[in-house]
Computed example of a mutant assay.
Amino acid sequence: MALVESIYQCTNTFPSEEKFGLLSQMRRCAVSIPSNIAEGAAKSSAADYSRFLTIAIGSLSELDTQLELSKRLQFLNDAAFESLDSQLGSISRMLIGLRRSIRSKA
């Protein structure tokens, strides 16, 4: 959830013409990550949970690409990019580890 909050905060500084473009897409991706984790955890099988974790990892990868684009377009400064990139890396490692653990139990 901290990542979602961070994305919302950093995108507040994006140009207004990005409201329905990159800004909106980044926010949707960020919200999708914890939403898919929660939905998967509520499922009754390990296979379903693993599938939703895979979707969350995909959203995280999309967000990673969008962050890089935001940096290249100079919508994000280096400090903001580094902070968000670090958060993404940590979350990615956790999700991949959790998915691996769930799959080994299935």
Rank of each mutant, 00 (worst) to 15 (best):
L76I: 12
S44M: 09
R28E: 01
R28C: 00
E62T: 10
L84E: 01
R99F: 07
A38P: 09
S50A: 15
S92E: 15
N77P: 07
T65V: 02
L76E: 00
Y49H: 14
V31P: 02
F20N: 11
P34K: 13
G97I: 01
V4F: 01
R100V: 07
R28N: 13
D78S: 14
P15S: 05
Y49N: 08
A47P: 05
G40L: 10
S61M: 08
L23S: 15
L63M: 07
L53S: 05
R27P: 05
A2H: 14
A79P: 06
E17K: 13
F20G: 13
L73Q: 09
I55L: 03
E82W: 10
S32Y: 04
E17H: 12
E68S: 11
M94R: 07
Q25I: 05
N36A: 08
A47E: 09
C29A: 11
F81C: 15
L84V: 13
S32G: 14
E68L: 13
I37V: 07
A80M: 07
E68V: 13
L67A: 04
S70I: 04
I37L: 15
G58Q: 01
G58I: 00
S6M: 10
T11G: 00
R93C: 03
A46I: 10
L63G: 00
T54D: 06
Q74E: 09
F81W: 11
R100A: 07
V31R: 04
D48R: 08
S92G: 11
K71G: 08
F14K: 04
A56W: 01
C29T: 02
D48H: 08
A47D: 05
Q25F: 09
S61W: 08
S83I: 04
P15F: 00
A80R: 09
Q9I: 09
L69G: 01
C10Q: 03
K43M: 08
T54H: 05
I96L: 15
R93T: 14
R93L: 13
K19M: 14
I91V: 13
L88A: 12
M26C: 04
A42Y: 03
S86D: 10
L88G: 07
L76G: 12
S24V: 14
Y49C: 05
T54W: 09
L23C: 06
R28A: 10
S59C: 03
L67S: 01
L84H: 15
L98Y: 03
P34L: 09
E5S: 11
F75W: 02
E68Q: 14
A56I: 01
D85L: 07
Q74S: 14
V31G: 00
C10H: 05
S6D: 09
K71P: 10
Y8I: 05
L84A: 02
K43C: 14
G97D: 04
S92R: 15
L76Q: 10
V4E: 05
I91K: 02
T13N: 15
S35W: 02
L60D: 06
L53N: 03
Q74D: 15
V31D: 02
A42E: 11
L73C: 05
G89S: 09
S32C: 05
G58A: 03
D78M: 08
L98P: 00
D78V: 12
S59Y: 03
I91L: 13
